[in-house]
């Protein structure tokens, strides 16, 4: 106690039953009963706390608050789920859109054309290479078509030429003259298909020179 009166914190503790020692509690109560000033303060504190307790009885005037809150919780949940599934949905939409566009020919056609271009370019450059090989072996080219390159080469050079043509499909026959207009019987031609490089270079059996004394040339067709 400070001076003759009870300090406020002791009164506050007394109200909260925070003064455990019975002797101290009894002594404080005794003082309150005998001291009008402390009794007044103690009554005022009690009244203050009573009014506070009354406030705790006030109910929330919005009776539909739980229902409203549950509605908000449900919609927040839905939003959250939607946001979670957004990347998957976006990916699915992209795939569907991509497939649709591809099927409609809006995308991907260019790629197909490119492939076609590439194959014709490849075929074209291969024909050029064939022509180059033929020229290198002193052969005469008589015809270049979409399907083949036709030419005539001296019999002595053919084996070497054939070796350089590698795995390409080649049809050939022995002729007497180099003249391309002289009738060639392509129905009797020998046709070789696709020997691999190693075999054609080293293991091919050369055309024997003795197919008749008149046969000096080989008429050939190198197919694309």
């Amino acid at each position: 106690m400070s001076g003759d009166h009870i300090p406020f914190h002791k009164m506050s503790d007394l109200c909260d039953n925070e003064i455990r020692a019975c002797e101290e509690r009894d002594s404080l109560m005794e003082h309150i009963q005998s001291c009008p000033e402390c009794a007044l303060e103690f009554r005022r504190l009690g009244k203050t706390l009573d009014l506070c307790r009354e406030l705790s009885c006030i109910s929330c005037p919005e009776h539909d608050l739980p229902a409203r809150t549950m509605r908000s919780i449900r919609s927040a949940r839905k939003k959250k789920l939607l946001l979670k599934s957004m990347p998957a949905m976006a990916a699915s939409l992209l795939i569907i859109a991509g497939v649709s566009l591809f099927n409609a020919g809006i995308i991907g056609v260019h790629d197909r054309a490119t492939v076609a271009d590439d194959s014709s370019r490849k075929s074209f450059s291969d024909s050029e290479r064939v022509i180059e090989i033929i020229r290198d072996h002193s052969a005469a080219i008589s015809q270049v078509t979409d399907e083949y390159v036709e030419g005539t080469v001296p019999l002595s050079s053919f084996n070497n030429l054939r070796k350089h043509l590698g795995s390409r499909r080649v049809a050939y026959l022995l002729v007497e003259e180099s003249d391309p207009d002289s009738g060639a019987q392509w129905g009797n031609a020998i046709e070789e298909v696709g020997l691999d490089d190693g075999q054609s270079a080293g293991n091919r059996e050369p055309i024997p020179g003795g197919h008749g004394a008149a046969a000096q040339y080989v008429r050939f067709r190198v197919f694309r």
């Binding site: 109910s59 929330c60 608050l65 739980p66 229902a67 809150t69 549950m70 919780i73 449900r74």
Partner: peptide, 18 residues
């Protein structure tokens, strides 16, 4: 059971509101 949460709301709404 999300709906069970309404029991909590009911129990604490007055104190929270005040």
């Amino acid at each position: 059971d999300i709906e069970a949460f309404s029991v909590i709301i009911d129990k604490y709404r007055d104190k929270t509101f005040n």
